[in-house]
Design a binder for these strands. Structure first.
Lengths: 193, 193
DNA sequence: GGCGTAATCCTGACACTGTCAAGATAAGAG
DNA sequence: CTCTTATCTTGACAGTGTCAGGATTACGCC
């Protein structure tokens, strides 16, 4: 078949729909998200997603599960280039937390502030827990002892990430990358005992 | 007229619609928010809100403006019963920030994570800025000197508020009120220089 | 090779949504 | 009392998610 043919069977529609969904999310925002738009962008009929994801919530659930894995990967990427001591690793995880929020703000919002994904899903549930549990584990490794230590680090990383993703906190968001990293790192360290 | 009459003119439909909108928001969540449901709840036709708010975005804009004022009031309420020194006042403002998020999580989400309200609106714009500017001002009064000080306090208060509003951070959220307040206060103090 | 089953995708329909246009009703000014 | 204006309703339209049924293709099995 020639390259512009549209075979009845897509081949990898599930992945294509997930990619289209994230693009739609980034362009139109989470509140204007439309399943039919996603289908149109992927070049299939409006009811095609149903077979792979059930309903709109199912698509967003799958997208969120994938998102949490990438969220964790963003933290791991920072840790890989950081010093090996526990405190540095913790700060690196926090930087990755913020990186993800800045790079993909709408997806970040889907992960943390949306009630459309089904967090009891067998795939999403563990993925979500693993994502923030990682940060909490780092706190203990870095000398944290109490639940207040956990909460403080999580809250400060999450607060920075959320405010930056929303475009508030201009004094930090408009900084050059290096300076911003340094400031974020310094702020995260304040939460440690 | 008897009590169950439905006069053609409502009397104070604008306020009734705002109240109905917040109730709908709390019950159905921000992503399932429906203008027609709000109208039905207020006992008027589906097009009645248009006259007062233009479109759905206009209603949410007005609701957000009112929300920001109440958000500021929650901080003021805590400050009124706190010690007068700047540090105590700052912690009190943070506690009010968290109070509001816990008491009205969906409205909190409308204020901070929704793109449906029009933040360039002549009423909402100033109301929003005033709400978080207040916290930033408190930082300076309490000895803050740098933008990092501002960002740290704002981020930690916002992070706690957002995580608690979303039902994460169970270790803090399930605490008795007094203990939770004490922990939140202690965490906020970590952000100070 | 051919066949039957199952997976995949499409078409059409339904109820619901936001928004607009036009009309009905009531309040208030003169 | 009349006229103007604000307020609210009715009806229509396009767009949305979801379901039922049908069309098309892939794949295992002979």
């Amino acid at each position: 078949m020639s390259s512009d043919d549209k075979p009845y069977h897509h081949g990898d529609l599930r992945a294509a729909l997930l990619a289209a969904a994230e693009a739609e999310l980034a362009e139109r925002g989470i509140e204007a998200f439309s399943l039919r738009s996603v289908a149109k962008r992927a070049g299939v009929s409006h009811a095609a997603p149903a077979h792979h994801f059930g309903d709109a919530g199912g698509l967003l659930t799958a997208l969120a599960a994938e998102g949490f894995r990438q969220f964790l990967a963003a933290q791991a990427a920072r840790e890989a280039v950081a010093a090996g001591d526990p405190a540095s690793q913790l700060v690196a995880a926090g930087l990755g937390y913020v990186d993800f929020a800045i790079a993909r703000p709408t997806l970040f919002r889907l992960l943390w502030q949306s009630d459309r994904p089904d967090f009891t899903d067998a795939d999403l549930g563990p993925a979500a827990r693993a994502a923030y549990q990682h940060l909490v584990d780092q706190v203990m490794a870095a000398g944290g002892r109490t639940t207040a230590d956990e909460a403080a680090v999580w809250a400060i990383a999450h607060g920075l990430a959320d405010l930056l993703a929303a475009g508030r906190l201009r004094t930090v968001g408009t900084l050059p990358t290096d300076a911003r990293d340094a400031m974020v790192a310094g702020i995260i360290r304040r939460a440690l005992p």
